[in-house]
Design a protein around this nucleic acid. Structure first.
Lengths: 310, 310
DNA sequence: GCGATATCTCTGACTGAGTCAACCATCGGA
DNA sequence: TCCGATGGTTGACTCAGTCAGAGATATCGC
């Protein structure tokens, strides 16, 4: 992603916005700025002038005059604020609310006209893309751990697991299509036949997008569960998602009565290993093997669930 | 997707752009409009004034004055156009190019500052989302059949097949997770073991995004190939993608020496049926069954490849 | 070839959105 | 109680952008 991409988008979107309010008929008899003020008032009906100034970053004198005009037109009333007599509390009148609604309606129609030109099939993608741009660009956009939710898989989520496992390990470690086959096999086995009380998949979701997964299935050994397919999207690492997924499996396995929880991984997956260690897994075996087009070191880990717990 | 979503995005992005060119220091000693003209000139160095007017939708008088200023500052030269003496051909001078580069550099820095606040991991998603918004909103956005390419699957594409099959048939026909399991099984079988000379998967790609797929595998019957997992994204239907995928399979199957091509589908999938019929498949058997949580009518279709062909 | 009409450019005259500076009132902290 | 900071108002100003008219030339119908 380059600066040029963003500039190109800015130019493009400036035109989109420009096309939307062509000739200002939209705001008559007010200006764009005035209608922005009105919009702000309509959405927080009791605000001080200083708040408006900050929110819309307007010149104080300019805003003062705009409010004069609104007061003359009977759209607002001004009174000194209780807490601080220097400040002026602005409240919309009934007429002001009507006018705001009128302007909003006109803007809606204009945007609706634009929207009607995009095929209905494209709209969800458009909405999704706009949301993505907003959340990424919104300042202070650091997704917080509490924005991540764990849930059961829905339609397509098992396919997502296959897709992301294959794409990520191909990109990060160069694994070949055999790995995609293995994951597809694991997922197919799970989908075709699993005991919902003893086997489960979790999807970690952030802003409506899946960003992680893990699976817990019965192992051949008695009273033993196997953790599989732990994955966290690279751009959401550091939020403790892996920890939460593993904890979900551990809690679930312990809760339904397994005595042991095992997993198989490879030594190149360092960050996953640290997660396992944090949850008390211990390395019980290690064996080199050739898979997925690479020479790897397979590791078996085990966690004793019958212990006193951490 | 509602009109409100778009308006919210517009408000948001207006602020982004506003924050970018705060206080006009960016364009000094020129204005935003002037620098837009300069930008346009720098990117198509020999244009007529009328072109500029159209491109930037400026008032003719306003543009004339801007060009006057540029000429005085030695940024451009004006001469009557050859073909039409009414028009004025505008060419940038060396000094004009310098100035344009300077302004571009300043804008780049400003955008770069914005970009530096987004974590590197988010940038690909941001670029992708911006591209999506642009292509969808760009007027005349009707993807053309020649924009679609068929290719071999890459890492993650088999997972994509599972994901989209499951999500689409769940949304359109209410099929349950059994179907996702079946698709995962088919894909896993293919991934784990297939003869690349006799079995193959195609992905249809549009604008870098997968929008369709189909698989051709060996059947139990001798010299018989089986077409599976034909899928086209709903928002790209009508571009002949399904036809191209099926044709790819038919040509491939005939080319490597299969004598028969069979497929199994369900009667609810009407549009797929029409594609099969167009390619000469004939219905050979029909049987009700209960699968994927629904009562369905399974159909076996067959195409004789040894015939004279169409 | 001729007139009617449209297009391109330019200039003069204007509007009005937004800025700047000065001023008064009040708050909050030393 | 003083002093710097903040909130609000008004006057004066700038300058981006619009509108109308005029001169030059192209294009179209005849």
């Amino acid at each position: 992603m380059t600066v040029q991409d963003i500039r190109a988008f800015n130019r493009f979107y400036t035109n989109v916005i420009g096309a939307l309010d062509y000739s200002r008929q939209l705001y008559a008899p007010y200006t764009l700025t005035e209608s922005r003020v009105l919009y702000e008032l309509a959405h927080s009906p009791r605000t001080d002038a200083a708040d408006l100034r900050g929110e819309l970053s307007l010149d104080a004198g300019y805003l003062s005059r705009i409010l004069n005009k609104f007061e003359q037109d009977g759209l607002i009333e001004r009174a000194p604020s209780r807490q601080d007599p220097r400040r002026r509390r602005v409240t919309l009148t009934a007429r002001g609310r009507e006018t705001a609604a009128l302007l909003a309606e006109r803007a809606n129609e204009s945007v609706g006209a634009l929207l009607s030109t995009v095929p209905a099939a494209d709209r969800p993608r458009l909405a999704e893309a706009m949301r993505t741009v907003r959340t990424i660009l919104a300042d202070g956009h650091r997704p917080r751990p509490e924005d991540v939710v764990l849930r059961e898989p829905g339609p397509g989520d098992l396919g997502w697991i296959v897709q992301r496992n294959a794409a990520l390990y191909a990109a990060e470690y160069g694994w070949n299509a055999d790995y995609e086959g293995l994951v597809a096999r694991i997922v197919a086995d799970f989908a075709e036949d699993h005991d919902p009380h003893l086997e489960r998949v979790w999807i970690a979701e952030l802003d409506g997008r899946p960003v992680g997964c893990v699976m817990c299935v019965r192992d051949e050994a008695p009273a033993t569960a196997r953790l599989r397919l732990l994955l966290v999207e690279p751009d959401t690492r550091g939020l403790g998602i892996g920890d939460r997924l593993v904890r979900a499996v551990v809690d679930f396995a312990r809760g339904v009565g397994y005595r042991d929880l095992v997993l198989w991984t490879n030594d190149v997956l360092a960050s996953a290993r640290r997660i396992y260690q944090r949850h008390g897994f211990v390395l019980v075996a290690e064996k080199p093997h050739r898979s997925f087009g690479k020479d790897l070191n397979g590791q078996d880990w085990r966690l004793d669930l019958s212990g006193t717990g951490e």
